[in-house]
């Protein structure tokens, strides 16, 4: 199996006043292609710091990080921007869509920074994949939370990244919509996408294949989910959608 993420002895220290906080205190792990990982842990456990390091949004204090076989821990700002653009698709808790900008234009954004030709066609393809073709000319404030998150997922996959990083993607959504979004992630995972989700809801983690638990900047537990919940079944269990 191909290794997408390979981190070795990752450290991240913050200076807070006169104490040093070890947000990451020697994290070593590997994540393989096609994996679907939930990162869990109490706040302050280092899971967000880990995500930011993996997403190349922040640099570790020490340790090695190989993404798709490339050593990113030694890269400069411009290279990191290209890595984020090419290899990683981000999904945020607050969606982070550009306001007053249509769904289609939002999805085109990573393609714009990649300098891809035929952007509109590819963006339309990604929007179709998340099932929002009929809403692609709507602006974010004209879409529901679930629809906005779908647009954000379309934006995350449009550049065909090796890794999708989702930070509390269902944190702002109700149960039904959360299941819908998880169903979409499962579908993408079935198609072979590697996905990492940060969550503190055990129920959400149950949709994944593997759970990594953080505590005090270290990996506390790393286990395979035996009874993975199928989001479509979970949706059905909720009963028919209210009108």
């Amino acid at each position: 199996m191909k290794t997408v993420i390979d981190v070795r002895d990752l450290h991240k220290d913050y200076v807070m006043g006169d104490t040093i906080v070890h947000a990451l205190d020697g994290v070593t792990t590997e994540i393989y292609e096609g994996d679907f990982v939930a990162i869990m842990g109490p706040s302050g456990s280092g899971k967000s710091t880990f995500m930011n390091a993996v997403g190349c949004l922040d640099r570790p204090s020490s340790g090695d990080y190989f993404l798709n076989g490339e050593e990113v821990s030694a890269m400069g700002d411009v290279e990191l921007a290209q890595i984020r653009n090419k290899y990683i698709g981000f999904v945020f808790q607050t969606f982070n869509l550009l306001p007053r900008t249509s769904a289609l234009k939002n999805v085109e954004l990573p393609l714009m920074y990649a300098g891809t030709k035929g952007r509109s066609e590819r963006a339309k393809g990604a929007i179709e994949l998340v099932g929002l073709t009929d809403r692609m000319h709507h602006k974010p404030n004209e879409l529901s939370g679930g629809q906005q998150q779908r647009v954000a997922i379309a934006r995350a996959i449009v550049n065909d990244p090796v890794l999708i990083l989702a930070d509390e993607p269902t944190g702002n959504l109700d149960t039904r919509t959360s299941h819908e979004i998880m169903a979409l992630f499962q579908e993408l995972n079935d198609q072979g996408k590697t996905i990492i989700i940060v969550t503190h809801e055990a129920e959400i983690a149950q949709h994944c294949r593997r759970v990594i638990r953080f505590r005090d900047g270290r990996i506390e537990k790393d286990e395979v989910v035996d009874d993975q919940v199928n989001a479509i079944d979970a949706l059905a269990a909720l009963g028919p959608a209210p009108r």
């Binding site: 997403g55 949004l57 700002d77 411009v78 921007a81 290209q82 984020r84 653009n85 090419k86 981000f90 945020f92 982070n96 550009l98 954004l109 990573p110 920074y113 990649a114 934006r155 550049n159």
Partner: peptide, 16 residues
Amino acid sequence: TKEIGLRKALGATGSS
């Protein structure tokens, strides 16, 4: 600022 952060996360370089 947040928009700038987002654009950078999506691959915008400092010069863009």
